[in-house]
């Protein structure tokens, strides 16, 4: 079972705060981490390897410091890691990202399953997984919450939809995105940490992938960000005062006025 896990290094935005003076994200003290959703993808890859043998290759496209995320992936059980990094990859939208990843997957050769997180914490699109599957011309299943069985070149998985869950069968090789319900990621093992320190992580650039420079990064992106701004939170709410019973009474009055009760 050869598994490829795609992951992205993101700022750990859970603690993100806006500087009220400058209205920008405060980045000091915010570490870059593996996109939390991708940690479930990695863990599931490692579990598949433990069940069926084979190997797990972690792959990331990003700036040189994304190597840190890949080293962490090795400490968490990935056998190999590849960094796709080139100045020309910068500013990629989801299409250009998927195209770059697909080129790297093709260079890597044989695989059975590619696992991605359901979305990233920063970009939040969830589009790279499905776009990657089409570029590789393999099946795709989103929001997988359980891999039930893999046998005879077929996999059977559960995936979450709004109304409940579905059981889907797909032939290998296939691309899936996973949700956090699928597993509880392990902590790095001592052996893993030692291994990650000495792991050789190759860096593949535009010439290594043999891709057309106009198809990657900002140049290869069909979508373009034209404006970035901070949402205005109009804070004009009314906090009721006085004795609790009166406050509840006030609230009832407001809800009645709005025709809601």
């Amino acid at each position: 079972m050869n598994v490829i896990v795609c992951l992205k290094q993101v700022p750990g935005t859970a603690q993100v705060k806006i500087d009220p003076e400058t209205n920008t994200l405060i980045r000091e003290g915010i570490e870059n981490v593996i996109n939390p959703f991708d940690t479930y993808a990695l863990e599931e890859g490692v579990r598949l390897k433990e069940r069926f043998g084979g190997k797990v290759t972690a792959m990331s496209m990003g700036p040189p410091q994304a190597e840190g995320a890949l080293r962490e992936a090795v400490s968490l059980g990935a056998d190999e890691a590849i960094l796709l990094s080139d100045k020309a990859f910068a500013g990629a939208d989801t299409w250009a990202t998927a195209y770059t990843l697909a080129s790297a997957v093709n260079k890597l050769g044989q695989y059975d399953i590619i696992i991605c997180g359901r979305q990233t914490l920063d970009g939040d699109t969830g589009q790279v997984g499905p776009e990657l599957s089409e570029m590789l011309e393999v099946p795709f299943v989103a929001y997988v919450s359980r891999i039930e069985e893999i046998a005879d070149g077929q996999m059977r998985v559960q995936r979450m939809v709004e109304e409940g869950h579905e059981v889907i069968e797909a032939p290998l090789p296939t691309v899936i995105t996973v949700v956090k319900e699928i597993n509880v990621p392990r902590l790095p093992s001592l052996r893993g940490i030692v291994k990650s320190k000495s792991a050789v992580i190759p860096v593949w650039t535009v010439p290594d992938l043999g891709v057309d420079q106009s198809r990657v990064g900002l140049a290869g992106s069909f979508t373009k960000v034209i404006k970035v701004f901070f949402p205005q939170r109009v804070c004009q709410g009314e906090i009721f005062q006085g004795e609790l019973g009166n406050q509840v009474e006030c609230l009832m009055g407001k809800l009645k006025d709005a025709g809601l009760v």
Partner: peptide, 22 residues
């Protein structure tokens, strides 16, 4: 939706066009 976010990116990938999520 879970359907839209799963299959619309595949359509955009094949049509080689831009897609903005969410």
């Amino acid at each position: 939706t879970s359907l839209g976010r799963a299959f619309i990116p595949r359509v955009a990938a094949i049509l080689k066009t831009g897609l903005t999520a969410d």
